[in-house]
Computed example of a mutant assay.
Amino acid sequence: MHNAFDPHEQATNLNAKIIAGLERLSTVFRAVIQQQAKANKLTPLQTQLLLFIASHREHLCTVTRLAEEFVVTKATVSDSIRVLVEKGYLTKQAKADPRTFSLGITPKGSDTISATAINSAV
Rank of each mutant, 00 (worst) to 15 (best):
R24C: 03
T43Q: 15
T76D: 11
L49H: 06
S80E: 11
E69I: 07
G109K: 01
K41N: 05
A37W: 08
E69V: 04
T106Q: 13
F70R: 00
D6C: 09
Q10Y: 10
P107Y: 05
K17F: 05
E9R: 02
T43R: 14
F5Q: 13
V122A: 11
T106V: 09
L22K: 03
G104T: 02
K95H: 10
E68N: 15
L90V: 07
A11E: 11
F52T: 09
E23W: 06
N13A: 12
V83F: 04
T64F: 11
V77Q: 00
H59A: 07
L45A: 00
A11T: 12
L49T: 01
Y89C: 09
F52N: 09
Q46E: 15
G21M: 08
A121P: 07
S78E: 07
N15H: 13
V72Q: 06
I81H: 01
T73C: 10
A75T: 14
Q46A: 10
T106F: 07
A54P: 06
T106W: 10
R99C: 05
S120Y: 10
I118N: 03
A39Y: 09
A121Y: 09
R82C: 06
H2I: 11
I18F: 04
I113L: 02
I113N: 00
E69A: 06
A20F: 00
F101G: 05
V85H: 08
S55T: 04
I18A: 05
H59G: 02
Q93Y: 14
V83K: 14
I19G: 01
I18E: 04
N13H: 15
F70T: 01
I113P: 00
S102P: 01
V71K: 12
R65L: 08
C61L: 03
S55F: 12
K87A: 15
I53S: 06
V63A: 14
L14P: 15
I113V: 05
A115S: 15
G109M: 01
Q48M: 04
A31W: 12
T43D: 15
A117P: 14
L50F: 00
A16H: 11
T64M: 12
A37P: 14
F52K: 06
S114A: 12
F52Y: 12
D111M: 05
L84R: 01
I81D: 00
T73M: 11
V72R: 11
K17E: 12
T12F: 06
Q36M: 06
H59E: 09
N3W: 03
G21W: 08
A20I: 09
R99F: 02
T12D: 02
Q36K: 07
Q36Y: 06
H2R: 11
R30A: 15
A39P: 00
T43A: 15
L60K: 13
K108N: 15
L66F: 04
S120V: 11
P107K: 13
G21Q: 13
V83T: 08
D111P: 01
I105T: 13
Y89Q: 10
A16K: 14
K38A: 11
C61A: 04
N119E: 14
R24D: 07
V28P: 11
E9A: 06
K41T: 01
A16N: 03
H2Q: 08
F70H: 02
I33Q: 05
T43Y: 02
D6T: 10
K92W: 00
T91S: 13
E86I: 11
F29L: 03
L84M: 09
S78H: 08
H8P: 03
